[in-house]
């Protein structure tokens, strides 16, 4: 199951880079982000999962789509072909970093047990990470007002 979602995550990420329709590209990014959030939940990183869904899959994608919907495709922009060459290089580079982290650096990691994040999601959020809630409120406020500012023009 994890492998299947990981493959989906990589596929949606590649689609987000290569799709020429910018709206479809943003939707692929949202799908990739949801896959990542599912992986977080599967590994019991509920805290990271909630933030991934609310901020990245939710708010950022809404802002992307709103901006796209407000712009008109008046001129055809020629795409830079560099992306076809650069993307595989960066992709391989990141895979290399992943392998390095898992193979060489992970032994001896002290973080897995007994850290500040052990316990239920509610306990963590209310008991130990209350300040993040203030940040989350700020994120929601910022998103709401950013969208309001974009739509005030459409109303005109």
């Amino acid at each position: 199951m994890t492998i299947f979602i990981l493959i989906l995550l990589v596929c949606f990420s590649i689609l987000a880079v290569f799709l020429k329709d910018i709206l479809k590209s943003a939707l692929s990014l949202a799908a990739a982000s949801i896959c990542l959030a599912i992986i977080f939940f599967m590994f019991h990183a509920f805290y990271a999962g909630v933030f991934e869904i609310s901020v990245v899959a939710g708010l950022i994608i809404v802002l992307f789509i709103t901006t796209i919907s407000l712009t008109k495709a008046e001129t055809q922009v020629k795409e830079n072909l560099m992306v076809y060459f650069l993307f595989p290089i960066f992709f391989i580079l990141l895979i290399g970093i992943d392998i390095m982290i898992y193979e060489k650096l992970s032994p001896g990691i002290p973080a897995v047990s007994g850290t500040i994040f052990s316990g239920h999601f509610g306990n963590i959020l209310w008991g130990k990470r209350s300040f993040d809630l203030i940040g989350q409120i700020c994120v929601i406020f910022a998103g709401v007002f950013a969208i309001l500012s974009l739509f005030r023009g459409k109303e005109k």
Partner: peptide, 16 residues
């Protein structure tokens, strides 16, 4: 988190 807040609100002002 506060970096994200500043970025999102800045987006609103850039596109104002």
């Amino acid at each position: 988190i506060f970096l994200e807040v500043a970025a999102i609100a800045s987006f609103g002002l850039v596109s104002f």
